[in-house]
Structures are given as structure tokens and as C-alpha cells.
Computed example of a mutant assay.
Amino acid sequence: MNAALRAQQRYRDDAVLSAPPERLVTMLYDRLLLDIERGESAQRSEDWEEANAQLQHAQAIVSELSSSLTDEWSGSAGLRSLYVFLSQTLIGANIGRDPERTRACHEIIAPLREAWHEAARTVAEARS
């Protein structure tokens, strides 16, 4: 790995390690949406290896988001159920090579991503 790539990786690592919890959630949602978009694009161009890689990474993020939920929050059960649905749909979209199912996941994630960004802004403003 050259010096520029190492510096970029170090910057990303530092950003994650220093981010407050609400920012970590938004970072995960940002990457999840990107993975789904890339996966769908790869499916549409019939690049199955790339689609598989992107959709598997998306599944890993959904799993991480699900595991971060605590039962102390009343919304955990509903969000956990949604994550199970997303995971199953991403698996089915990947196995079935179905970009429409991948697109359906995008349509679910996009408004959630926006809601988490808004919540993070509210928390950051309250902290200031």
C-alpha cells in the first residue's frame, strides 16, 4: 500500500474512532446506502462478482446495526424486525440476481438514513 492510500486509511480509521455514537450510526447508514447503490448498479450491468461483494458488505452493515440495538429503547423491536427483513431481502436479491429487490432495499434505507442524520444533528445541536 502506498503512502497516500495509508494516509487515507488512517484518516478514515481516525474518523471512526473519534466519532460520537450518533455519527457512527449515520456513517453506517451512508455506507449501507452506497453499498446498495453499487450492488444494484453491478447487478444491472451483470457484474455478479461486484454485486455479490457490495451486497454482502451491505448485509454485514445491517447485521452491525441490528446488533447495536438495545432492549432499553422502545423502538428496538420494530427496527430489529426491519433489519431482519432487509437482511433477508438483500440475501434474496443477491442470490436471485434481482436488481429490483435491491432497489426495494434502497427505498427503505434512504428515508431511514435521512431520519438518523436529522436525529444526529439534533443531538449535536443539543450538545453545543
Rank of each mutant, 00 (worst) to 15 (best):
M1N: 08
M1T: 06
N2W: 04
N2E: 09
A3M: 12
A4Y: 06
L5M: 11
R6I: 08
R6G: 00
A7W: 03
A7I: 00
Q8M: 09
Q9T: 09
Y11K: 09
Y11N: 04
Y11F: 11
R12M: 15
D14S: 14
D14P: 00
A15W: 02
L17H: 05
S18Q: 14
S18A: 11
S18E: 11
A19I: 01
P20R: 12
P20N: 07
E22P: 01
R23W: 01
L24W: 04
L24I: 04
T26H: 04
T26V: 09
L28E: 02
L28M: 09
Y29N: 01
Y29T: 01
D30K: 02
D30N: 05
D30I: 02
L33H: 08
L33Y: 06
L33D: 05
D35E: 08
I36S: 02
I36V: 10
I36G: 06
E37D: 11
R38P: 01
G39I: 02
E40Y: 00
S41C: 00
S41Q: 13
Q43M: 12
R44H: 01
S45M: 15
D47W: 04
D47K: 05
W48I: 11
E49K: 04
E49C: 00
E50G: 07
N52R: 13
L55E: 05
L55T: 08
Q56T: 11
Q56F: 12
A58T: 01
A58R: 06
Q59D: 07
I61W: 01
I61F: 03
V62S: 04
S63N: 14
L65A: 08
S66W: 08
S66V: 00
S67H: 14
S68G: 15
T70I: 04
T70Q: 10
E72N: 10
W73T: 02
W73H: 11
W73C: 05
S74P: 12
S74H: 14
S74N: 12
G75S: 07
G75M: 07
G78T: 07
L79G: 02
L79R: 05
R80L: 12
R80P: 00
S81H: 13
S81C: 03
L82V: 13
L82P: 11
L82A: 13
Y83H: 01
Y83Q: 07
Y83A: 06
F85H: 14
L86T: 07
S87A: 09
Q88E: 15
T89I: 00
L90M: 15
L90G: 10
I91Q: 13
I91E: 15
G92N: 13
A93S: 15
A93F: 06
A93G: 14
A93P: 02
N94M: 14
G96K: 07
D98E: 13
D98H: 06
D98I: 09
P99I: 09
P99L: 12
E100Y: 08
E100V: 15
R103N: 10
R103T: 08
A104F: 11
C105V: 11
C105H: 07
H106I: 06
H106E: 15
E107L: 08
I108S: 06
I108R: 11
I108D: 10
I109Y: 03
I109L: 06
E114W: 00
A115I: 05
A115E: 12
H117Y: 03
E118Q: 14
R121H: 12
T122F: 00
V123K: 01
E125H: 07
E125K: 15
E125P: 00
R127M: 10
S128F: 01
S128H: 13
